[in-house]
Design a protein around this nucleic acid. Structure first.
Lengths: 327, 327
DNA sequence: TGTTTATAAGTTACCGGTAACGTTAAAAAT
DNA sequence: ATTTTTAACGTTACCGGTAACTTATAAACA
């Protein structure tokens, strides 16, 4: 910048002012400086800027369970787009549903003095909570609505999603009901939906007949395979609730391959309105969620807090049970 | 750090040495310093570190078309994991298959003085190429093997993938052949596979009978819908090559919904060995690719270059045509 | 014993910006 | 004509580490 300033015949400080577009320079000076910036191909050094102004950087840390998850990918896209628009850079982390991995990542990212963090879908270690509180950095926890957040929480109410689906299935007259999930060792929020689901059944004095929770990651084949296990083990079921749509689709395919009709022989419901469901011959009964809305809301909330604007601590992102033709 | 040093009764410099684990201190001193680090909850300031050591930062920029794409998500996971292991932070960007968006992102990330960049799946603007060459920063271009890369290239040979599939289809006796793609306005590398495919047909004096390239993003429903358009327009086809597996699956479902048998009435092939194909009743004919291998290879290549270790400029990630039961 | 060598520190200057404050000259108010 | 205000700059110090150098101490050696 010193070079640019010298070439433009002004002081470093004036060049800095022009580049940051703060007040204190004339139009004429701006032109002179910008011309030299262009000519010399000057690329500002944000490291020095972040360092010089005792402020935090324009980095925002975003952590998700896996980057390969389609549904979180779409949340990430939405967050990243919203943040980029306001001049923030996204630093990502994949915590793999482990509080330790998350803690390591958080320690790392805090050393970059980020302006804020967006954490998803995991309960944090004690150290993590302390660290974040001590730094007083804006944090949005997303995915599940957390009623006692570190700072802010934007998310779906997974328990209610499950509860609602439980009531719906009972309402359709089902009695022998199963559940299919994944990630047994590192439970995500599917576990919370299951809890809500089971709770709805309990209220009607119905027990979960059987369940199959794999150790694998969720996916089409996991759903296929788990359904096979479940049905082999428990015999006839009226309906099965799946951790998510992809697993439910796998279940539908298993049934199809064995000549089991859906929903006549067994009802199937998922969660998450995932894209794959769009090609099924029957519309999948599921809970519709907007990952776009979630991501944007979370990013906006974080930016508001960073800028010191008023912002609710809790924002629920609505979900809707969409009855299809599979239950 | 000054506080820590003072508390430990050593100089700032010694504390710095301990924290970076470079030589020049005793075990006793390390213990003293580390104890105070723990006690005071010191989190190092990497911004100051990157600034102080005229070096580049430990940030690595990674740009992909979309974060919501399942296949790139898996590449990202693999890259991020490999980079994190070596103490690098990933800054992501989504270029949405636009050279301008990419350019804006690159200018932004360069202001963070990253140690290196991983760019995917897009030809760059002239300004971008100049900027990167001028900065002399290590760059790996991934996804497609680029024979004249800015710096390094790690990828699949998309043209050959298409060519191979073209030959395979001809070998199965198909003559009236169609193509289905997406992203017409912002073509990715599906366009290159199509080119290879068409080229194989041409070599056997076969013209592409018909094609349907949507403006939408690729996906199950896009494949479903595009197949409907294609078949309505061109009547009977022997086989269809799809931009990727997800679209091919959509195509299979369209056929199923209309009572068209695969592969008896029409053959269907995709690309990318995507997870969804695992639940199909028939194994999908496709090209198997390893996104894991690609990501890890790219990250390793970049780190090698950053560290000044010897590293090939071009690394091809092998692909394999996997004949299934759909062609 | 004196000299060399290795190890463990401390000192100083500096990285490239920005905050805070000081200066100047022109415009506005009295 | 003088004072006050304001916009447009310039100066200086500083952010929190690290590189490069210097110094102190102890061990190894001729």
């Amino acid at each position: 910048m010193a070079e640019v300033a010298k070439a433009a015949g002004v002081s470093k400080m004036t060049a800095s002012r022009v580049l940051r577009d703060v007040s204190g320079f004339s139009e004429e000076t701006r032109d002179k400086v910008m011309r030299e910036v262009e000519r010399l191909g000057y690329v500002p050094n944000r490291i020095a800027a972040a360092f010089g102004s005792e402020q935090t950087s324009t980095i925002i840390g975003v952590s998700v369970p896996f980057l390969s998850s389609a549904i979180f990918g779409s949340v990430l896209d939405s967050i990243n787009g919203a943040l980029a628009k306001f001049g923030y850079q996204t630093m990502i982390g994949a915590h793999e549903n482990s509080a330790e991995t998350e803690e390591v990542w958080i320690k790392n990212i805090l050393s970059w003095r980020p302006a804020g963090l967006i954490l998803s879908c995991h309960s944090h270690s004690a150290t993590t909570r302390e660290l974040l509180k001590a730094h007083g950095i804006p944090v949005v926890e997303i995915w599940n609505l957390n009623t006692s957040p570190i700072d802010m929480s934007v998310g779906f109410n997974h328990f209610d999603c499950g509860y609602e689906m439980g009531e719906y299935m009972l309402g359709r007259g089902h009695k022998r009901i199963g559940y299919v999930g994944a990630d047994a060792e590192t439970p995500g929020l599917g576990a919370l939906r299951r809890k809500g689901f089971v709770s709805a059944l309990k209220n009607a004095s119905v027990e979960l007949t059987s369940e199959e929770i794999l150790n694998d990651k969720s996916g089409f084949y996991a759903g296929f395979y788990a359904t096979e296990n479940l049905l082999n083990r428990s015999g006839v079921l009226d309906a099965i609730y799946y951790q998510d749509d992809n697993m439910a689709i796998g279940g539908i395919f298993y049934c199809q391959s064995r000549g089991i009709s859906v929903p006549e022989d067994v009802g199937i419901a998922g969660w998450g309105s995932m894209e794959a469901a769009s090609i099924l011959p029957k519309r999948l009964t599921t809970t519709v969620v907007s990952t776009q809305a979630l991501g944007k809301t979370a990013a906006d909330a974080l930016i508001a807090r960073v800028r010191g604007e008023p912002q609710e601590d809790l924002v629920i992102t609505p979900t809707r049970l969409a009855p299809g033709n599979t239950v």
